[in-house]
Write a protein that binds this DNA or RNA. Structure first.
Length: 599
RNA sequence: GCGGAUGUGGUCCAGUGGUAGGACAGUAGCUUCCCAAGCUACCGGCCCGGGUUCAAUUCCCGGCAUCCGCACCA
């Protein structure tokens, strides 16, 4: 199923998500997760945290959502989030003004220019509309910054921005995080939280929004030495949609081919072992949370599509029927190289490297000079310092030059002759314990909201039960907002009400998220739970109260089948079902089943 | 941002220049021993602002929001 209208209607009516602040007319691109949706989202985040932080031995942090301007100057977002558009007066098409300028001139970084300068260039170079050929001269160049700006502190304050990705909060704290990791690679830091993008045109409900929740891992590695534990996911099957497949004139109908992680690496479909590893981890994780993996593929970014920082990137894409059957991006696994840490090192002047120790300290012969400044000073005056530096440079690059009696260096085009004795050239033996390296970053970045949306879309099913059509949400038990619902079979019999209340207390004490419902007919109550994906319903009936020991019936959401089990075994059975140690089929064969109208 | 369509109880819709109705959902009661049953009652609405008019939910203008297409999506 999964018509868009169905998903949106269910989401609103049952409290999964809805447009925020509708009482005041709302604002496009902002959504509130209702009780069911918030619980589902929380479960997605918990499962992600378990897999990408806990199981990978990574640490989670919580950085501010607002950072001062220099952070985003360094990260490149201030420039690259700034699109300049120019609209053709004739045909009305909008074009990236900076791209037009770059295409028509020798300029390579037109993005860095001011809109007014771009407008001037459009005019001077007589650039025309690529679509209709009309002159663009005189058209206004509009600027869109996709970051939300704010000011920090009173008055004009200091400009700040809401983070457009959670990643920067990790990168800027790298100097401390590396200390926490005791300076040893590889290590990873995760963060789950909101990011903000002032989209020009939010669309398609939850799929394109202005505030989104990201779950990101920044895996810091030594690109030369660190290898992922590839063998743990080597046999995981992936559906890869690589660049060559996308470029073929007639790509496969499904738009992917299935290979294992091992094959992807061996056949060099995926260049980086680390990316391959996380593709495998992601695939397993999606299976775990109940995404329909028949509707999951990994698509490699085309070269022109990649972000300013990425050298390779694979998106996880889910086919979402309620979005018109489109493949939508739900995660990106990219290789960011040392881009971010280098940029923040430059921007801040701080140390964003780690010290990489050699296995054995290495002795190196290092040519050095120690010029006698008491001679150079009087001889060269103000140039003496520069001459000394030039000598050091020469020693490093061309030690043979010191074999002559006089060495010659050039400073600002002027030659200086120095007696070799004065330079005090010497080759000394030094011990090096290691080198400072800037780690590379592998970034699995997940869109939590879109994942939630895909789970609902994939989970929404319609079948027939008891002669009636019914809608149910086939969520993985771990994701379901409610673990189990408990009903008295009829609500006009006091002992049943009491017994149901007791069962709920017992389940809650055992750690289950249990709910009770005694309003309306039993069928109606089953349907309510079916719609919000509650995997199991427990019903207390008179027959059960008369049994010795007492029994209740346990109902499976997807089939409606019921087993009558002793009340005392309920917690244990639910735990077994939850932990995957039992399935409902086994219960049905082990216990008495309950006839339903369907059978 | 451009173009088109739309905006009526919680949800899905009908309708009108004289302030509105249905279905479903919800609540209360009756009934009810297994899948949205029935009966009774109740709750609850014309997106916002301006204009035209004696009177606007209806017509006009603007805004906001939603959907579709285009553009954008680092």
């Amino acid at each position: 199923m999964g018509e868009r209208a169905d998903v949106v209607e269910l989401a609103k009516r049952r409290g999964f998500f809805f447009a925020a602040a509708e009482a005041y007319g709302g604002a496009a691109g902002f959504y509130t997760f209702g009780p069911e949706g918030a619980a589902l989202k929380r479960n997605v985040e918990s499962a992600w945290r378990d897999r990408f932080a806990l199981k990978e031995d990574n640490e989670e942090i919580a950085a501010p959502t607002i950072m001062p301007e220099p952070v985003f100057e360094a990260s490149g977002h201030l420039d690259t989030f700034d699109d300049m558009l120019v609209e053709c007066a004739e045909c009305g098409e909008s074009h990236r003004a900076d791209h037009l300028v770059e295409g028509a001139t020798a300029l390579e970084d037109a993005e860095a220019l001011e809109p007014a300068e771009i407008a001037t260039i459009l005019e001077e170079h007589e650039i025309d509309c690529p679509d209709c050929g009309a002159a663009l001269a005189g058209q206004e160049v509009e600027e869109f910054n996709l970051m939300f700006q704010t000011s920090i502190g009173p008055g004009s304050g200091q400009p700040g921005y809401l983070r457009p990705e959670t990643a920067q909060g990790i990168f800027v704290e790298f100097p401390r995080l590396k200390e926490y990791a005791r300076g040893k690679l590889p290590f990873g830091v995760t963060q789950i939280g909101p990011a903000y993008r002032n989209e020009i045109s939010p669309r398609r409900g939850l799929i394109r929004v202005r505030e989104l929740t990201q779950a990101e891992l920044e895996q810091f590695i030594d690109p030369e030495d660190d290898e992922p534990p590839l063998e743990t996911v080597a046999d995981v099957a992936l559906r890869l949609y690589a660049v060559p497949d996308q470029e073929e004139s007639a790509p496969a109908a499904e738009g992917y081919r299935e290979v294992t992680v091992r094959e992807a690496v061996d056949e060099e479909v995926v260049a980086s072992d680390w990316i391959a590893y996380y593709l495998g981890v992601a695939q397993e994780w999606y299976e775990r949370i109940g995404l329909d993996t028949e509707k999951l593929r990994f698509r490699q970014h085309l070269p022109g599509e990649r972000a300013h920082y990425a050298s390779d990137c694979w998106d996880a894409e889910a086919k979402v029927e309620s979005a018109g059957g489109d493949w939508i991006e739900i995660a990106g696994i990219s290789s960011r190289g040392d881009y971010d840490l280098s940029k923040h090192a430059d921007g801040s002047g701080e140390n964003f490297t780690v010290f990489k120790q050699y296995d054995e300290p290495q002795s190196v012969l290092e040519p050095t000079v120690d010029p006698d400044m008491s001679v150079l000073g009087p001889e060269f005056g103000g140039d003496a310092g520069a001459v000394a530096e030039a000598l050091e440079d020469l020693a490093a690059h061309d030690p043979d030059a010191f074999e002559q009696e006089v060495v010659t260096v050039t400073v600002d085009g002027e030659r200086y002759d120095v007696d070799t004795d004065i330079a005090n050239f010497e080759v000394v033996e030094k011990t090096e314990a290691g080198v400072h390296i800037t780690p590379h970053v592998i970034e699995p970045s997940f869109g939590v909201d879109r994942t939630v949306y895909a789970l609902i879309d994939h989970g929404l099913e319609r079948d027939e039960l008891g002669g009636e059509t019914r809608d149910y949400l086939s969520l993985a038990a771990e994701m379901a907002p409610t673990d189990v619902a408990v009903f008295p079979l009829v609500s006009n019999h006091e002992p049943l009400l009491e017994s149901a209340a007791e069962v709920v207390s017992t389940l809650r004490a055992a750690g289950f998220d249990a709910t009770r419902d005694d309003s309306g007919s039993i069928g109606r109550r089953y349907r309510r739970q079916d719609e919000v994906g509650t995997p199991f319903c427990v019903t207390v009936d008179r027959d059960g109260l008369e049994d010795d020991p007492e029994t209740i019936t346990l109902r499976d959401r997807d089939t409606g089948a019921q087993a009558r089990i002793p009340t005392g075994e309920l917690v244990g059975q639910l735990e077994a079902l939850r932990d995957g140690e039992a399935d409902f089929e086994a219960l049905l064969s082990r216990y008495e089943t309950v006839e339903t109208a369907d059978e």
